[in-house]
Design a protein around this nucleic acid. Structure first.
Length: 110
DNA sequence: CGAATTTGACCAGCGC
DNA sequence: GCGCTGGTCAAATTCG
């Protein structure tokens, strides 16, 4: 019905590739914000970083991504997943960069 | 076959 | 004290 051809159990939401691997472990509809929220966790061993994706059922194009946990501790250098490692280390800038990459440059809205 | 993903249900904390 | 919500886990199913 929803997937003629290819296979895809996705809920129909396209996540922006941030350069890391994530494992989805839950999804729920939050009435408080009238939006859907998906819970992702870093798929790397030893990395307990969590990622939350929030979007409205009417606007799957408006994704709101939030990173929790701090930073990835696995070898992003040896893996093939490196966000914007253009030189400079990162900590808070890393989180902001990822969010901006998903929103464009309007975060937070406030 | 292995791996990945999805859904439902349960639990805990908080507010009034 | 009770109800409600959010968050996580487990199991089942499916694809390449």
């Amino acid at each position: 019905m929803e997937q003629p051809g290819g296979g895809s159990r996705s809920s129909g939401i396209e996540l922006p590739e941030d350069g890391f691997e994530w494992k989805k472990y839950g999804q729920k509809f939050i009435k408080n914000i009238s939006k859907l929220r998906a819970y992702y966790k870093c798929a790397r061993a030893g990395c307990s970083v969590k990622k939350k994706v929030e979007w409205a059922e009417s606007e799957p194009n408006n994704l709101r991504i939030t990173y929790e946990g701090g930073q990835h501790i696995h070898n992003t250098t040896s893996q093939e997943a490196g966000p914007s490692r253009s030189g400079g280390s990162s900590s808070d800038a890393n989180r902001y960069n990822l969010i901006i990459q998903a929103f464009g440059d309007h975060y937070p809205p406030s």
